[in-house]
Structure formats: structure tokens, C-alpha cells
Simulated scan of single mutants.
Amino acid sequence: MAFSAETCVAMHIGNRAEQQDRVSLFAHPKRPGMMMAVLADGMGGHSGGAMAAEQVIMRAKQNFESYAPLHEAPQELLSSIIDEAHTIIKLTRFTSEKDPHSTAVTFLLQQGKAYWAHCGDSRLYYFRDTQTVARSGDHSLVGELMRKGRLDEAGALKHPQRNVLLSCLGSEREPRIEYGCADKLDAGDSFLLCSDGLWAYFTDFELASTLRAHTPRAAAERLIQLARERGGGCGDNISLVIVKLVAPPSSAR
């Protein structure tokens, strides 16, 4: 079944002094029907995190513009963005007094298929109606404890070390990159990329239901409003991208 994509990019500074998240959505300059979304949650003191996250966005845009799908696999594109951004972020440590780090989530929509990669605890969700088809795993201490069955979702949200990452861009270790793909997309499917400033306040079902019931812009506004309310004055930076697949008008099918 044919579909088109409705999208929205949104951010909120939360209760932080600085917005260190970065997020972007762009089409390929020469190849119609191809789209990339990228989100990065920066860390590293005053302006250091923002600088790291900005490098992820810049590398994603540059690599996507030169991407040739006939000669390069989607996974190669996604991994090159994270690996090269990681190297650049590490180099900035030698030219500044900051210690910049960042998470990264990259998403590619190409020829009716979706591909994604991530490092850190920013997430990608893939929903079909209100069902969670896929969700990226957090590269964090609590994420690892959950994978080992030693912690549940409720405990993870209250864990005192829930912000400790085991892998991110800019660290001494090479980034841990995990991949996902979906090759049977259909109208009604939706994708959400978001930082922990958003996902920490919602169940999967709440997120999926909101995306299903609203346009991307209305869904983004509602999710940010609820995250701010639930944050109780202590909310982190919020960033998100929504990509919602919808059936085209009958005349366009």
C-alpha cells in the first residue's frame, strides 16, 4: 500500500539553563522519496554538550547529502555518521577545556523501508497503531540491568544511577552502535525519535496512542506539555522527531 509521511520536529529547554539537545530532519537534495532524521542529546558542561550534539547533526547532513544508495548500504551510512561524529567530538577535547559527549539516533526512510541506528539512551520507537513494533535499547547502567532481568521499568525510572551511560559519542571507548530496520511499512505506522527528557515520563502505549490520535504537530505539543507537567519543575531538555505514515488521497494512489 502506498503512503506518504507527515513529520514534525520539536524541542523544549525544560528546566535547564541551556538547550544541549539537537535535532533535525532533512530530505536528500537529489533523490526524491528519501528522508533522514537525527537526534542528539549532548553532555559535557556549559556549551560542551551542545557542541557535541551539533557535530552529530552536521555529520548526518553532510554524509546524507553525499549518500549514494546504489553504492552504499543504509547501515554503512548510519554507522559512518556515528563513528565520524564520535571522532570529531573526541578531537574537540584537545582544542577546548570541555569534555563533550553526546548520544545519537539516526533514522533513514528509503524506498518504502526504514533503517535506524543509535548509541546512548536517546530512543527510537516504531509503532503500528498502538502496538510497539520496535524500541531501541538504552546503552545505560539501568538499561543493562533491565536486559539482565535485575530491574523492571518502574525501578529503572527511580534508579539513582539512571543517567549513567555505558556508551556514548566522545568517550574513550568506541561507540556501541545498534541497528534496526523495517521493510514492510504501511500507512498507520509511526516513528518517534526522542531524548530521555521526553521518554522518561511515558509508557510505550501512551506514546503510541498519542501519535495515532493526533497529527505530528499536535502530538508533539501534547507530549511536551505532559512531560513538562510530569517533570514537576525538574525537567530535562526535550527533543523529538515524529514521522507518521499516512495513506495518500484516493486520487493520488
Rank of each mutant, 00 (worst) to 15 (best):
Met146Ala: 02
Pro29Val: 06
Ala104Leu: 11
Ser47Cys: 15
Val38Thr: 11
Ile82Pro: 08
Arg150Ala: 10
Thr132Tyr: 07
Ser171Trp: 14
Glu18Leu: 15
Gly188Met: 01
Phe127Ala: 12
Pro248Cys: 09
Phe191Pro: 00
Ser66Tyr: 11
Gly170Ile: 02
Ala114His: 14
Lys90Asp: 11
Gly48Val: 06
Glu178Val: 00
Phe191Lys: 00
Leu141Trp: 09
Leu166Arg: 04
Leu198Asp: 05
Glu65Phe: 13
Ile177Gly: 01
Ala68Arg: 14
Gly149Trp: 04
Ser209Ala: 09
Arg162Glu: 00
Arg31Gly: 04
Ile81Trp: 00
Gly48Glu: 10
His101Thr: 04
Ser24Ala: 14
Lys244His: 14
Pro249His: 09
Ile238Pro: 04
Ser66Met: 13
Leu70Tyr: 12
Arg228Trp: 08
Ala52Asp: 08
Lys184Thr: 15
Ala114Phe: 11
Tyr125Trp: 05
Ser102Val: 07
Gln62Trp: 12
Trp199Glu: 03
Ala68Thr: 05
Ala17Val: 14
Cys119Tyr: 02
Ser239Asp: 05
Ala220Gln: 07
Ser239Val: 04
Leu77Gln: 03
Arg135Tyr: 04
Ile224Lys: 04
Pro248Met: 04
Tyr125Ser: 04
Ile88Tyr: 12
Arg230Glu: 03
Gln225Phe: 03
Arg135Ile: 05
Leu157Ile: 10
